[in-house]
Write a protein that binds this DNA or RNA. Sequence first.
DNA 1: CTTGACCTTGGACCCGGGACCAAGGTTTAC
DNA 2: GTAAACCTTGGTCCCGGGTCCAAGGTCAAG
Lengths: 144, 144
Amino acid sequence: MTATIGFWTVGRLAGEVGVSSDALRHWEREGIFPAPERSPAGYRRYGPEALDRARFIRDCQRAGLRLADIGDLLAVRDTGECPCEPAEQHLERRIGEVGAEIARLEGLRDQLTSMLRAVEAGTCDPPLPRNWCPPDGTAGGEYG
Amino acid sequence: MTATIGFWTVGRLAGEVGVSSDALRHWEREGIFPAPERSPAGYRRYGPEALDRARFIRDCQRAGLRLADIGDLLAVRDTGECPCEPAEQHLERRIGEVGAEIARLEGLRDQLTSMLRAVEAGTCDPPLPRNWCPPDGTAGGEYG
DNA sequence: CTTGACCTTGGACCCGGGACCAAGGTTTAC
DNA sequence: GTAAACCTTGGTCCCGGGTCCAAGGTCAAG
């Protein structure tokens, strides 16, 4: 620590941001987090800018963006420009994806619910799977 | 075919059910699909019961159940009992999961939408990520 | 000086559900 | 008879985002 006043090790930064050290090293390997300076012993020494970048990545992740997408945004940001236009595109795409997924899940939930109702009612003839019961004809199933 | 009248090869069964041959072999490896008889040449020879089982698995999959869960249901079913009680549990669990996921995604979508609105408005100070803009203070970001 | 917490590296492994491959055998159709 | 289309096996690879590991170096506290 004496040689790194004002600088953070990977664990310190990780703790500050709320991710794991492994995650930070992973981001570095993936090329979305610049390799920091090293201490004489080879320890990563992060400056304050790393804190903001890590939080940026973390927050993008929480928004469901993939690391590759975050990398795109950062690449623009790193040129000194506001990555708003690409961000807009990513956000729109992501909103579409999320909406589609919600719709899919709602349909699935309806299906599951009706299956559950049928099962509860003892009416072993629900929509899907068509019939939970065995082949022997005990309950007359389509499945064998 | 001559030696397997009334029996299906893996590709035939796969085509009938609408999955791939690889998927069927995968299910067999995973232990949820019984290994069928073999032709003298070693080809899998499926009887009619395989068709129903495969459809059952496929339909359970469409309901979002995992292969392991499907295996549980099949294990009960294979004893000759109706797997309704376990199915009920799986369905309830799955409905809960799906509901939670829908709620999560709806929250995420709201977040993304407000981010998008902020970005569109040029107000680079959205909730999350806190600021898309670069460190230089051009737009005064929290991220550095 | 020792203990324990931290750091380094590269690589293997995890989840789920297969896809795809090579190298060869079989069956079918013409 | 021969080509096409099927089948077999075991194996690796994919997606994403890491986690976990071993074997070793470093550093602060007591």
